[in-house]
């Protein structure tokens, strides 16, 4: 078995008010995994992320990054290697030009100026916003700000990138842009954790899904396993992905053969329909 990149063991955390937000969370995350973290509001996803990045200090439990247990001394290592893209871009953007903003992380890593400039250009090119370099963030739109916040983390070259509800408050075009970036980052072997309420997105993008409910992980497996398990869905108040419903209905009505090749996008469904129909092609209306 390969060594997990991030190992979280029996993590407990409660905020100042005394309400426990995390009650014993244990999870192993492996290099290059694409993980969707799902669960209702207040189930502990964001708290878990902040603990994983070392901003919040757990009451109990330990976190190891690449086999090293994190303590006060090597906390910086954890922050350097685990980047968070926050939900609200306005809570993340701190500098008054895009360049200074994207350079903020690398500057904190105490890199030489040349290297910082190089990384900023690289990250802005990656997100396709090099033109915005000299602009102040307060004249950017929501989608543009989101790109800047992602560039922030790309410039830090974190191994693990955490996205806290990235698709919230984005228009369809920007959401698509974001998904393209996620696919691109995935191809480059980055480990990603994304919290989302969009089950359709989780279903088609993720390789693994972790379900949070009231401060605990109640399920951990492939999205297919989880979304087929009605008990878990009910407990975590989750909806089933549309494509899963459509496929099961088609199978139930004997319109396609049950091949266990679950389609996750309309495109995949189309291919499936073209290949696995019960009836000869001539008798079917054009799709």
């Amino acid at each position: 078995m390969r060594e997990p990149i991030l190992k979280v063991n029996n993590l407990h955390y409660s905020y100042g008010t005394g309400n426990p937000a995390l009650k014993g969370v244990s999870v192993n995350i492996y290099n290059g995994e694409k993980i969707a973290v799902i669960g209702s509001n207040g189930s502990g996803k964001s708290t878990f992320f902040l603990n994983a990045n070392g901003v919040l200090k757990a009451d109990h439990g330990e976190i190891s990054y690449q086999g090293t247990v994190i303590n006060k001394k090597n906390l910086k290592e954890l922050r350097k290697n685990i980047g968070i893209v926050f939900q609200d871009a306005d809570n993340q953007i701190i500098a008054s030009t895009v360049m200074a903003e994207v350079g903020f992380g690398p500057m904190n890593l105490k890199l030489p100026r040349e290297e910082v400039l190089h990384r900023v250009d690289e990250a802005l090119t990656y997100m396709n916003i090099l033109d915005f370099k000299d602009r102040p963030p307060h004249y950017l739109s929501g989608g543009e700000k989101k790109r800047v916040t992602i560039a922030d983390i790309i410039a830090m070259k974190s191994e693990v990138i955490i996205f806290d509800e990235p698709t919230a408050a984005l228009d369809p075009l920007n959401a698509q842009m974001l998904e393209d970036v996620l696919v691109k980052l995935g191809q480059e072997g980055k480990t990603m954790l994304i919290s989302t309420h969009d089950v359709d997105f989780a279903y088609r993008w993720a390789e693994r899904a972790i379900v949070f409910d009231r401060g605990k992980i109640i399920a951990d497996g492939t999205p297919l396993e989880i979304f087929k398990n009605r008990e878990i869905l009910k407990q975590a108040n989750l909806k089933r992905p549309t494509m899963l419903d459509v496929y099961e209905m088609l199978v139930e009505k004997k319109m396609v053969k049950n091949t266990d090749a679950y389609p996750t996008t309309p495109k995949e469904l189309k291919i499936l329909l073209e290949n696995n129909l019960y009836y000869p092609e001539s008798s079917v209306p054009m799709i």
Binding site: K76, R79, I94, A100, G105, N108, V116, V120, D134, M156
Partner: peptide
């Protein structure tokens, strides 16, 4: 508070240094 959290997550350690053109 949210700001401070976000700054810490990006390695802020008490010195606010920005990249200047």
């Amino acid at each position: 508070n949210a700001y401070y959290t976000a700054m810490e997550a990006r390695g802020y350690e008490g010195d606010l240094v920005f990249l200047e053109d």
